[in-house]
Simulated scan of single mutants.
Amino acid sequence: MRVYLPCTLPALARVVTLGELGPAPLTGYAVTPALVEWYVSGDTEELEYVALTEAARASLRMLAADRADGVQVAARRVVIAAEVPDGSVSAGAELEERARVRLAAAIPMADIAAVHVDDLSAVEDVEAAIAALPAADRGDDDARFALDGAEANELLWYATQEIPDLVG
């Protein structure tokens, strides 16, 4: 099963150093039965894009949490795409996050298929979205617009052999 895992550039560097993404349990996003039922007209590619987008939103929250903790982290969303055995994934029940899954084991580098990262041109929009998160969570429409601005930027695809260059 293809699973999309939210990340940040410093966390991706730790994955390279440790040789795995962990520790478990991990939260990821995938094409779940609930997502398929909700998005009936979507084909597999569209459904995977929804899961990737959910993981990118979670990456944005990780960036905000790192910043709140005083960690200097680049304003670039990161999503790791991995192939994992179906048996290691369990789907959540929350209707708002139909694509959310939990993984019971760490993900070794060998199971990582690709990494998706914001281009440098997205940094300004991602910065604005990080700043807008608290207000957006309170329902502020202007703040939600800032979140949409970040999501308007497509994440770039990187092969696994390019990961060291991303974090170096």
Rank of each mutant, 00 (worst) to 15 (best):
E37H: 15
I80M: 08
S90F: 12
D66N: 15
E46V: 11
A68C: 01
P108R: 04
E54S: 14
A128F: 09
A34G: 08
I112H: 02
V71G: 06
R61H: 14
E54I: 06
L47W: 03
V117W: 00
A58Y: 02
D86L: 13
L26P: 06
V31L: 02
T53R: 13
D119F: 02
A113N: 01
D119S: 14
V71W: 00
R98L: 04
D66P: 00
H116C: 08
A106S: 14
Y29C: 04
D119H: 12
V71S: 05
V36Q: 14
L26M: 05
V115L: 04
A30R: 04
D86V: 14
V123N: 02
R67H: 00
D69I: 13
L95R: 15
E97F: 11
T44R: 11
A75M: 05
V40T: 13
T44F: 00
A55G: 06
A106T: 13
R61W: 05
A113T: 12
A68V: 07
V89N: 07
A122V: 09
D43W: 03
R77L: 00
Y29F: 11
V115C: 01
E46W: 03
S121I: 10
P33L: 01
M109S: 13
R77K: 00
Y29W: 09
E124N: 00
A55V: 07
G28C: 06
E46H: 14
A34E: 13
A128E: 14
S59L: 04
A91G: 07
A113D: 13
A113R: 11
V50Q: 00
G70V: 07
V84L: 09
E83Q: 08
A91E: 15
E97A: 15
L103S: 02
D86A: 14
V84Q: 04
A93L: 13
E124A: 11
P25H: 05
P33D: 06
A122C: 07
G42P: 12
V79I: 02
G87F: 09
E37Y: 14
A114I: 07
A74T: 13
A81F: 08
L47Q: 07
P108K: 05
V115T: 07
I107K: 04
A51S: 01
P25M: 04
T53K: 05
M109N: 05
Y49F: 15
A122G: 08
E48L: 08
A55S: 06
A30K: 07
A114N: 07
P25T: 04
D111V: 01
A51M: 03
E48G: 09
S88H: 14
Y49V: 02
P23K: 09
R98Y: 11
A113V: 15
R76I: 01
E46A: 10
E83D: 15
L63T: 08
G70Q: 09
